[in-house]
C-alpha cells in the first residue's frame, strides 16, 4: 500500500565532487578510510533509496557543481530516477525582500528559481522569506508587506508552472516570533503555501501543535526535524549576529525522535487532517548524514508509522 507521506531528504551534503566513482576499491586503498564513501552522487543517491527515501530536496548553492558534473538538470533528474529518487523540491532565499526598491530584483530571482526547479522536475520551492534578523530587524508593517508582495508574485508565477512556494521561516530570520504569523496572513493563500520546519517554528518560541492546527490547510510540505531547545530560544540569541552555528558546537537541530519536540502528538494531528505529500527530513548539523538519514526513517516509519504513514 502506498504511503500518504513520501519521504525526501534535504541535501545538506557539501560539494559531492564525483558523479560516479568506478575505481571505488582502488580509491579506498589510497587512504583506507570512509571518505570515499561520501564523494559521488551514485552512492549518495543509493544511500537515499536504501534508507527509505523517495526524494531529494536540492540546495541552490550546489547547483553550479551539479550542473558541471551532469550538464543539465534533466540529466541529473534522470540519474536520480535511475536510483529510484525524485527531486521533491529546492530551497530558495528571498534576501532583501523587505526593501521596496529591491522588489523587482527579488521577484526575478524567485522566478528564476522556479524555472530551475521546474527543469529538475521538482514541486516545492521552500522559501526563506527574508534576511537574518540581525542587521535588518525589527521590521515595520511596510517591510512585512514588501516581503508578502514578493512572495505573492513569485507564488503566482510558480503555480502557473506547477510549483508550490512554501514559506520556510528560520528562527533567526527577520520575520520572527512576533510577525511570522502575520506574514502568512498577508500573503495570498492561492499562491503562497507553507513549508513547516518543525524545529524552526519551535525555536522561534511558537507552539508547534497550535501552529500546525492553525495553518494545516496552507502547509504543503515539511522540513521535519527535532530540536532539544523546544521551549524556544531567547530573543537576544535569535536576534544576534551569526547565530545559526554555535561557537561551542551546540546543535539546534537533531534527528526526529532525538530531541524533545512532541512528534507523536504532531503526527496524530497530521493523521487527523490527512496530510498527503512530500515530507523532507532535514538533518543540518548532523556529523554523519548517512546515520542521520537511517535514524530518521527508522523513527518515522517504525514509531510514528504506527500512527500514520
Amino acid at each position: 500500500m502506498e504511503n500518504n507521506i513520501r519521504l525526501s531528504h534535504m541535501s545538506h551534503w557539501k560539494t559531492v565532487p564525483y558523479k560516479q566513482i568506478d575505481n571505488f576499491r582502488d580509491f579506498y586503498y589510497e587512504d583506507k578510510s570512509n571518505n570515499c564513501y561520501f564523494m559521488d552522487w551514485d552512492r549518495i543517491l543509493r544511500y537515499h533509496k536504501a534508507t527509505g527515501y523517495d526524494g531529494i530536496e536540492l540546495a541552490p548553492w550546489d547547483l553550479s557543481e551539479i550542473l558541471g558534473l551532469f550538464g543539465t538538470p534533466a540529466e541529473y533528474t534522470a540519474f536520480a530516477k535511475d536510483h529510484g529518487i525524485e527531486i521533491s523540491g529546492m530551497f530558495h532565499g528571498c534576501d532583501d525582500s523587505h526593501i521596496a526598491a529591491k522588489h523587482d530584483e527579488v521577484v526575478a530571482a524567485g522566478k528564476q528559481a522556479v524555472d530551475t526547479l521546474a527543469a529538475f522536475g521538482g514541486k516545492h520551492l521552500n522559501t526563506c522569506p527574508g534576511n537574518n534578523f540581525y542587521g535588518n530587524g525589527p521590521l515595520d508593517d511596510e517591510g512585512l508587506k514588501n516581503i508578502a508582495s514578493c512572495l505573492d508574485e513569485i507564488g503566482e508565477y510558480a503555480e502557473a508552472n506547477g510549483i508550490q512556494v512554501g514559506i520556510h521561516n528560520e528562527f533567526f530570520c527577520v520575520t520572527n516570533k512576533l510577525n511570522h504569523r502575520k506574514l502568512i496572513e498577508l500573503t495570498n493563500p492561492k499562491y503562497v503555501h507553507y513549508c513547516l520546519d518543525t524545529a524552526q517554528v519551535a525555536l522561534m518560541g511558537d507552539d508547534l501543535i497550535d501552529f500546525y492546527d492553525t495553518y494545516k490547510e496552507r502547509i504543503c510540505t515539511f522540513h521535519f526535524k527535532d530540536t532539544a531547545d523546544s521551549e524556544g530560544v531567547a530573543d537576544e540569541i535569535r536576534y544576534a549576529q551569526d547565530v545559526e552555528i554555535c561557537d561551542d558546537g551546540h546543535r539546534w537541530f537533531w534527528e526526529p525522535g532525538e530531541g524533545t519536540l512532541p512528534m507523536e502528538e504532531l503526527w496524530k494531528h497530521i493523521r487527523d487532517y490527512g496530510f498527503k505529500g512530500w515530507m523532507t527530513v532535514e538533518d543540518d548539523g548532523a556529523p554523519d548524514y548517512l546515520a542521520a538519514m537511517a535514524l530518521s526513517t527508522y523513527y518515522i516509519r517504525q514509531v510514528l508509522g504506527k500512527i500514520y504513514r
Binding site: 557539501k14 560539494t15 571518505n35 561520501f38 558546537g249 556529523p287 554523519d288
Partner: peptide
C-alpha cells in the same frame, strides 16, 4: 567545501 564525515564541526 567537500563532503566528509564529521565536517559539521
Amino acid at each position: 567545501d567537500n563532503q566528509a564525515p564529521n565536517r559539521n564541526k
